[in-house]
Design a protein around this nucleic acid. Structure first.
Length: 296
DNA sequence: AAGGGGGTCAACCGCTGTCGT
DNA sequence: CACGACAGCGGTTGACCCCCT
């Protein structure tokens, strides 16, 4: 039926977003929401395609975005959900509060998939040692720099900075304050994944139970660690309107745990990424899931 | 010290699903 | 019912950065 191009290409900016553009977009959405992505860039005074604005907001600027490395539990959950849902990244993302489909997709292709394909312990550890610290840290700091730049642009409106780019401490395996941002999409995805879960075979359930037992289920321990971390961490200032508008205060860490659900059996309370990696590798090997996963 | 190779991530592209008219 | 507009999704790409040789 001949679709019109998503936007007129002429005169529209492409590529990396500047701090000014970020601020403009955030300020506009903060004030007006995003009832119409197509019209948004024009109304916000941005020379961007509506899709580009949407993507930028969803994947980077949204106030509830959780940045930093994925914890071992998150990766485990991704593996499990991917086994159940396939490449339905948005559905998977719906089960991981604060994570975006794009991010999960990236992590899958760059970390998890390779690890599962390799199944090579020694090589893995070598890679993990290389990746987990410097590279990842560099990337994070790069993102952080961007935020810093944005902050520098408008120091006066600092308290309005919605960006939740991870502070250095947030790059650890422990997640930052996690909230959910309930959207129609998320709900739909949650419903679809729930449907999917309902069709999960009894055998899979048994496997999951066994896996949970094997994982040691130190959930309470993890909760304590999480709370401890959050209470000690310093978060960037966030405008209250974001929290209220996003309805995020309704959901605390307990709710997050519920959302992650039984699928989440936390690792031993490891505080470093390397330890997470070791846990993860061990878990995969011991859980006997590698047979299934290697097919992927 | 410098260049190449590989890893990572943000952003783009094109397709599909949904909803309103 | 047909059509168009829009949002959302998944695959892919390109730029950037670090490590290794």
């Amino acid at each position: 039926m001949g679709r019109a191009p998503c936007c007129e290409k002429e005169g529209l900016r492409r590529g990396a977003w500047s701090p000014e553009e970020d601020q403009r977009l955030v300020a506009y959405i903060q004030q007006n929401g995003h009832p119409n992505w197509r019209a948004l860039p024009r109304q916000a005074g941005l020379l961007r395609c509506g899709k580009s604005c949407r993507l930028r907001w969803i994947n980077y600027l949204r106030p509830d975005i959780k940045r930093g490395n994925f914890s071992a539990d998150e990766e485990a959950l991704i593996v499990r959900l991917h086994r159940e849902l396939g490449n339905r990244w948005s559905a998977i993302a719906a089960q991981l509060p604060g994570r975006t489909d794009n991010e999960i997709k990236n992590v899958w292709h760059t970390h998890i998939k390779k690890r599962l394909e390799d199944g090579d312990d020694g090589e893995d550890k070598k890679k993990a040692a290389r990746k987990s610290k410097p590279a990842a840290a560099a990337k994070r700091s790069s993102a952080a720099k961007k935020t810093a730049d944005a902050n520098a642009v408008d120091n006066n409106s600092e308290q309005q900075q919605p960006f939740l780019t991870a502070s250095p401490g947030l790059s650890s395996s422990v997640s930052s304050g996690v909230t959910t941002f309930s959207t129609a999409t998320d709900s739909a995805a949650a419903v679809s994944s729930a449907d999917n879960a309902a069709t999960t075979s009894h055998q899979q359930e048994q496997e999951q139970e066994q896996e949970q037992e094997q994982l040691g289920a130190s959930k309470a321990e993890m909760d304590m660690e999480m709370e401890s971390f959050i209470s000690s961490a310093e978060f960037p200032p966030i405008d209250d309107t974001f929290w209220s508008s996003a309805d995020v205060m309704d959901m605390g860490l307990g709710a997050m745990d519920e959302e992650l659900g039984l699928a989440l059996a936390g690792p031993p309370s490891s505080s470093t990424r390397d330890e997470d990696m070791e846990f993860w590798l061990k878990m995969l090997l011991e859980a006997g899931d590698m047979r299934d996963l290697s097919v992927l």
